[in-house]
């Protein structure tokens, strides 16, 4: 962790540091259903267990609701984003997640949600569930598959766009002296970030309480608790925390573009400083690895002008 506190807004100190993020690949899907409720159920299920690419294979989340007038089939929909190390790494995740969570969800359909010349074979797994009864229909430049299922047909687009310009790991660290107030502030920041298009906050409720460092004393563990940010270890380890800090929460941001992540960092930080110190937030920082690992650096000072 680098940086020192130089700025203070509304009683909240802003570290002069930066979030270090990594280049990733990302795709977007639009999931529709008879009602928004069922589109959201399918989307929520499909993006479950998608917090970290390390342990989950992909980082997934809901970008936004899509009105019926904007979806391919005129039904209410939800746009989900899926991020991975590469297009090849995303593909098996799509196959499993769409196959197990969208195909199975009543009344659902699944479409491409990202315009990009580079494509992923979205239907490559789910369409074969049709056991030969699947039907291909091509309308204009788009090909769809109709897979017979017990409530009628599951419709899925043949391919979806994928970008290799995505960014994973934008982040904000919120430090304070009141754990409940800290959580409320983090929730407000996540809500503000949710309004930014093309980004997700993939952790539970958008918030991480277990920031990690690279490596471990144990063989086989590639990451372990970030002891420098653990308040209960303040007296036993080299700490990055102030004396009155009793909790730290992190918001991790993945976006289809660097600009989207940058926009999310800005609105997230603004939401935190707008609330200010009243909820017990004392400081905002960001996680990095000294700038040597990630290609994308988001400096907090750029967002407080």
């Amino acid at each position: 962790m680098t940086g020192s506190q130089k700025m203070k807004i509304n009683g909240v100190a802003i570290d002069d540091t930066f979030a270090e993020a990594f280049g990733m690949s990302g795709t977007a899907l639009i999931i529709t259903a008879d009602t928004l409720k069922w589109a959201m159920i399918a989307a929520t299920t499909m993006t479950g267990f998608g917090t970290s690419v390390i342990g989950c294979g992909a980082e997934c989340g809901i970008d936004c609701e899509v009105s019926a007038s904007e979806t391919p089939d005129g039904r209410p929909g939800v746009r989900v984003l899926v991020f991975g190390f590469s297009p090849d790494a995303i593909l098996p995740q799509l196959k499993n997640r769409v196959g197990q969570c969208v195909l199975t969800s009543p009344g659902s359909a699944c479409y491409n949600g990202l315009d990009s010349p580079q494509r992923l074979a979205l239907s490559a797994g789910p369409r074969f569930f049709g056991d030969g009864w699947q039907i291909s229909k091509r309308f204009g430049g788009r090909r769809f598959w109709r897979v017979p299922v017990m409530d009628g047909e599951f419709t899925i687009e043949d391919t979806c766009g994928v970008t290799t310009e995505a960014v994973g790991g934008g982040n904000l660290l919120i430090l304070g002296r009141d754990r409940v107030g800290l959580l409320e502030t983090a929730e407000a920041a996540v809500a503000a970030i949710a309004r930014v298009p093309d980004v997700i906050t993939p952790f539970p409720g958008g918030i991480v309480r277990s920031g990690s460092k690279v490596g471990s004393k144990y063989k086989g563990a590639i990451a372990s608790t970030n002891n420098a940010f653990c308040p209960t270890l303040k007296g036993t380890t080299k700490t990055e925390l102030d004396a009155d800090t009793i909790a730290v929460l992190e918001i991790v941001i993945d976006g289809l573009t660097s600009k989207a992540v940058s926009d999310a960092m800005r609105v997230g930080l603004k939401a935190i400083t707008d609330i200010g110190a009243d909820k017990g937030v004392t400081r905002v920082s960001a996680g990095n690895y000294g700038g040597k690992l990630g290609q994308h650096h988001y400096h907090l000072k750029d967002y407080v002008a």
Partner: peptide, 17 residues
């Protein structure tokens, strides 16, 4: 008799074309 999502797709496609 069935309500198939693909009917919506073709209606919209033809309307756009």
């Amino acid at each position: 008799e069935h309500d198939m999502v693909f009917l919506r797709l073709i209606s919209r496609f033809v309307a756009a074309e």
